[in-house]
């Protein structure tokens, strides 16, 4: 379980994170929802140790983030983070060299699923293709948790559908997934749990099927209440 407790962070005089607390369980797909600038990406970066926190704690299976934990948690940022001069095959090799949790078979499977050309250079990829390769890099690691920052942002409709398929597959099963997105439409039926972020904190935290059974509301309905009410 990833446990985030009361995290605070200031940036340029503004409170980006203001006491956000939540947990991410294994075997569940959790989605962090919020308007632009709500701090969603910052939360993911903080979990990954890419930005320091003013206060609060983040524990992954009881441990604070450190170098070994990068074998337990994979991060798929909102853009591809490999050198443009590298070929896709070299990128895969790089990951294999550094990560013990790298699963080369899974990588092959995903490369084929997304129809990616291994000889292409990273700098030449279109946005959609780059997003797909980004997913390959993140999901081919045998990690217990996967964090994804806006996996659908700026992607064409068909690529989005393909990416959404990944969520329904065995690639995600048993893992704890935390993603952020604006495109709630694409994931409405996929996620188990929704965390609504407002003013740097989590203001609604619910199981989606439960809200549907008990209150007959969709995630979008709750979002309207929170952000427009």
């Amino acid at each position: 379980m990833i446990k985030v407790v009361d995290i605070h962070k200031r940036y340029r005089g503004r409170s980006v994170l203001n006491g956000a607390s939540f947990t991410v369980e294994k075997g569940q797909i959790t989605c962090l929802i919020g308007i632009n600038g709500a701090g969603k990406s910052t939360v993911l970066k903080a979990i990954m140790g890419l930005t320091p926190l003013k206060s609060g704690s983040i524990l992954i299976d009881g441990q604070p983030i450190d170098k070994n934990l990068y074998e337990q948690v994979a991060f798929v940022p909102d853009h591809l983070t490999m050198p443009p001069g590298m070929k896709l095959s070299e990128g895969l090799q790089f990951m294999q060299d550094f990560y013990q949790s790298w699963n080369a078979n899974r990588a092959e499977e995903l490369m084929t699923f997304f129809s990616l050309d291994r000889t292409e250079r990273i700098g030449n990829l279109s946005k959609g293709t780059a997003a797909k390769f980004n997913l390959v890099l993140g999901l081919s690691q045998d990690t217990a948790y996967v964090l994804m920052d806006e996996p659908f942002s700026g992607i064409d409709m068909f690529s989005r559908g393909l990416i959404a398929e990944v969520f329904s597959s065995h690639l995600i099963e048993d893992r704890g997934v935390l993603l952020t997105t604006h495109e709630i439409g694409e994931v409405e039926h996929l996620i188990d749990r929704a965390l609504l972020m407002k003013d740097g904190a989590i203001c609604r935290d619910f199981q989606c099927e439960q809200i549907r059974s008990e209150e007959g509301k969709s995630i979008v309905d709750v979002m309207r209440e929170v952000y427009q009410g």
């Binding site: 990954m48 140790g49 890419l50 170098k67 070994n68 990068y70 074998e71 991060f75 940022p77 853009h79 591809l80 983070t81 490999m82 050198p83 443009p84 550094f98 990560y99 013990q100 990273i122 700098g123």
Partner: peptide, 16 residues
């Protein structure tokens, strides 16, 4: 540039 490699470097399973 577009591909900030520093993200990858900082999340490698190695001492910083």
């Amino acid at each position: 540039g577009r591909n900030t490699f520093i993200y990858r470097l900082l999340t490698l399973p190695t001492a910083r």
